[in-house]
């Protein structure tokens, strides 16, 4: 157990307990108001384009989370820090939630726009691969709980898995997929041309970012308490 890391987590408690949920609530409420009542319909895609205000950020946040998993896993392999390990696990779990929601919202946009729920476009395929990698990472951790060798294998998977992200981002250009490359279209009538659309996009990103940070902070704290309780229970058995 890392006393330094735990005391740091304890010092962060007021911030993560009050400020993060409050900021999440305010920005998410603002995002919903913007997306449903303020922004105009996009000229080409119509009302379904509003799915993108969350879908794009769900993608970016899960990428960020998995990059954090790779960094924290590398730190864990180098130092054996349990704090790094907890952050890696928490980011993988919340990142997987965001990836799942991205995979939910994507087909609901694709059906009215492409006419199909799913296509084996390179970016979509790489997204499924990303989901499987981090689901496997979390399963490996559950199966190998308490076994340091398996935890180190999981950390390696957490690092290797992140290599899927640059492939996923570049897939549209490398393999000429049909997934839109960016939110801004070359068509002067399409994309985020309106100031309200840009604000809705930015506020949605901030809201989903705060939510990600809040969920990770909760997840890390629960794991910390869980591990401390396990130590106390073991000590009690020996006395």
């Amino acid at each position: 157990m890392s006393t330094d890391g735990d005391s740091r987590a304890a010092r962060l408690k007021p911030w993560s307990d009050v400020a993060l949920p409050a900021l999440t609530g305010v920005t998410m409420l603002a995002a919903v108001i913007m997306v449903f009542w303020v922004v105009p319909n996009e000229k080409i895609q119509g009302v379904v384009q509003r799915i993108f205000y969350f879908h794009v950020h769900l993608a970016w946040m899960c990428f960020g989370g998995f990059v954090f998993v790779a960094g924290a896993s590398a730190w864990y392999l180098k130092t054996g820090s349990p704090v790094a390990d907890r952050y890696a696990e928490a980011n993988a779990e919340v990142g997987l939630l965001y990836t799942t929601l991205m995979l939910w919202t994507g087909p609901l946009w694709a059906r009215p726009i492409w006419g199909v729920w799913w296509t084996w476009d390179p970016r979509l395929t790489m997204t499924i691969v990303l989901w499987v990698i981090y689901a496997a990472y979390l399963m490996l951790r559950r199966l190998g709980e308490g076994d340091e060798t398996i935890m180190r294998y999981a950390a390696v998977l957490g690092i290797v898995g992140v290599l899927d992200i640059p492939l996923l981002v570049l897939a549209v250009r490398l393999w000429r997929g049909i997934h839109p490359a960016v939110m801004i279209s070359d068509d002067p009538e399409a994309g985020l041309r309106n100031a309200a659309m840009k604000w809705a996009f930015a506020i949605s990103g901030v809201g989903l970012g705060f939510l990600f940070a809040w969920l990770v902070s909760l997840r890390v704290r629960f794991t910390t308490v869980d591990q401390e309780l396990a130590v106390l229970a073991a000590e009690k058995e020996h006395t």
């Binding site: 119509g46 509003r50 799915i51 939510l211």
Partner: peptide, 22 residues
Amino acid sequence: MKGLNFLAAAYTGVWIGFFFYL
């Protein structure tokens, strides 16, 4: 409005996902 049901399903699913995780 065309596509409104897809929009509703997308955001409902997102909120349900966050709700169950919390």
